[in-house]
């Protein structure tokens, strides 16, 4: 119970910081929008509706992945100002509560971006999904958590590294590839209705398993990373 209160405190602090600056959400939103526009120009999606359905799941996730990397790089840099991070390290609350609060805040930011981006995406790509669209309400949060939990962890891991902006994608992408495969396959399956519902549910279960496993590993190892000297 006390642990949850610590997590809630960290989450509230991050939300308040974001509410006052609105750096991450604005940056992410515009970046994701630009990626969608660039892909739209490259593929001419309105003329080829079938091809669009096949590739738009991948494009959506690539846009979100790149956008969240840009925001995740900044999320820990905030804590470095005035040596706040050193104070966090000395605080008696468990280190993983800090991590969970930060990851949940990042998750909320990316979800806001998705909520704004999805209608724009549908309009620009003239998208008409053939499968059960409500499944996306399950796939999107699970996929986002998979990206954000590892991303927040690796952003903290590369915090003191030389060129940390480059290091985050170098570490995050190889680790996330199984999750990316699962979320892109499930999304494409929903959009095209080519995949069996059983196959889609298997991909969703894999995504869920990935989320649970990596959340556990991140929570267990975060203290080591925070105090790595």
């Amino acid at each position: 119970m006390k642990y949850l209160r610590h997590v809630w405190d960290h989450l509230r602090k991050d939300l308040r910081l974001e509410w006052r600056s609105r750096d991450s959400i604005n940056g992410m939103l515009f970046f994701a929008l630009l990626v969608v526009v660039v892909f739209g120009l490259a593929f001419d999606p309105t003329s080829y509706p079938t091809m669009t359905r096949q590739i738009s799941g991948g494009i959506l996730w690539v846009a979100l992945l790149f956008a969240s990397i840009t925001a995740l790089n900044q999320s820990w840099a905030r804590e470095q100002r005035n040596n706040v991070l050193e104070a966090q390290r000395m605080a008696p609350s468990p280190a993983s509560a800090l991590f969970l609060g930060k990851a949940l805040a990042n998750m909320l930011f990316v979800l806001v971006v998705e909520a704004v981006l999805a209608p724009i995406f549908i309009v620009f790509f003239n998208l008409h999904a053939l499968g059960n669209v409500w499944l996306l309400a399950l796939i999107l949060p699970l996929g986002t958590w998979a990206l954000v939990v590892n991303g927040t962890f690796f952003a903290a891991l590369g915090l003191r590294a030389r060129n940390r902006e480059l290091l985050l994608p170098l570490l995050l992408l190889p680790i996330s590839l199984p999750a990316l495969l699962a979320m892109v396959q499930a999304t494409t399956g929903v959009l095209t209705a080519d995949l069996d519902p059983i196959q889609i549910s298997t991909w969703i279960k894999q995504l869920l398993g990935y989320d649970i496993i990596f959340t556990t590993v991140c929570i267990l190892l975060f203290e080591t990373v925070l105090n790595a000297e």
Binding site: R160, A161, L167, V217, A228, E229
Partner: peptide
């Protein structure tokens, strides 16, 4: 190996070990 190359000197061993667990 990239992480070992980029990370700051005092942290390299720990961070690399953590990444190895992830891998």
């Amino acid at each position: 190996l990239m992480l070992r190359q980029f990370s700051s000197a005092g942290q390299t061993h720990t961070l690399a070990a953590v990444l190895s667990v992830f891998a």
